[in-house]
């Protein structure tokens, strides 16, 4: 929403379709896309520009503000490590967590929802009842428990965070599957004796990619935020790696004495989340409008 153009939302058919149409929605979408791209490029290649390594301690400059002459463009943390490098390398982890955790939540949610929806009947009922049960779980709590108890490796973190929000996805996908499974092409495939698993994989899932993509784009910023919360609790990634969440939670403790420790990582985090949310909203609107126009055409 926000800066993204809203005229589209009110049922107007997007001018054409495809990526170009999406970007033509508004200036906000274009600005946010460019910003995200810039951040992604900076995060991947930026660390190469600095003479410092991520774990290098500069004993002469501990907890010092940004300075051009020392080469610490974002200042140093209270261990004398370069914040420019750490912020960008931290960005790699944050983005990785966002993407991988979302992928995992999609994987679980889509397969679960599609199976339940396609199978229907008793199986569907039982599977969805289980989802109801799981909704009552304090998931955040289980994530904390997992991180505490079974160490801090990245993969586990992806899985734990990703396992949080597959429930919504499962419900959405099930609904979509129900509406898709009696369409002609599915019936045809079934008549030809294509196994159920293949039908789901080849015919059902690809036909709801739109919904999935929209959902995923809104899930990525959520996942990044969850990771930052874990970091606040001290359950983030292992040293010397870091993440935006970790840098921000350390910086928040020194916002008065060393504001740069908060400012740089927090700006990166906030701008990234902001852009991701704007794009996610725009994507959803675009998708709705597209669906609306298709329905209108039908």
């Amino acid at each position: 929403m926000s800066a993204a153009g809203n005229s589209v939302a009110v049922g107007a058919t997007p001018a054409g379709s495809g990526w170009r149409a999406f970007f033509n929605q508004s200036r906000g979408v274009r600005v946010c896309s460019c910003l995200l791209l810039a951040i992604a490029v900076l995060v991947v290649f930026g660390p190469l520009l600095s003479p410092y390594a991520i774990d290098q301690v500069d004993w002469q400059h501990i907890a010092e503000g940004p300075s051009w002459s020392s080469g610490h463009w974002f200042g140093t943390d209270n261990n004398g490590r370069d914040l420019y490098v750490r912020t960008l390398r931290g960005g790699q982890i944050s983005l990785l967590v966002g993407i991988c955790a979302t992928a995992i939540s999609l994987l679980i949610g889509v397969s679960y929802g599609a199976i339940a929806g396609y199978a229907g009947g008793r199986i569907d009922q039982v599977m969805m009842r289980m989802v109801d049960v799981l909704y009552a779980m304090p998931f955040m709590f289980f994530v904390i428990l997992l991180m505490v108890l079974f160490g801090r490796n990245l993969l586990l973190m992806f899985i734990a965070i990703g396992a949080i929000n597959w429930l919504d996805m499962a419900r959405i996908v099930r609904g979509q599957t129900l509406s898709l499974k009696h369409r002609e092409f599915v019936d045809a495939a079934r008549a030809l004796g294509v196994p159920a698993a293949d039908i789901i994989r080849r015919h059902i899932v690809p036909n709801m990619m739109n919904v999935v993509v929209v959902y995923a784009s809104l899930a990525v910023p959520q996942m990044i935020l969850v990771e930052s919360f874990l970091s606040f609790l001290g359950l983030g990634v292992q040293e010397p790696m870091t993440s935006w969440g970790q840098l921000v939670s350390l910086g928040a403790r020194e916002m008065e004495s060393a504001p740069w420790m908060l400012l740089f990582p927090a700006s990166f985090l906030a701008v990234t989340l902001y852009c991701l949310n704007v794009l996610g909203d725009a994507l959803r609107r675009y998708n709705d409008a597209l669906a609306g126009s298709l329905r209108g055409a039908a």
Binding site: M1, L225, F232, G245, S249, A252, Y274, N277
Partner: peptide
């Protein structure tokens, strides 16, 4: 959007 982009800590 800012409200969901800045962690509460």
């Amino acid at each position: 959007i800012a409200g969901i982009s800045v962690p509460n800590f």
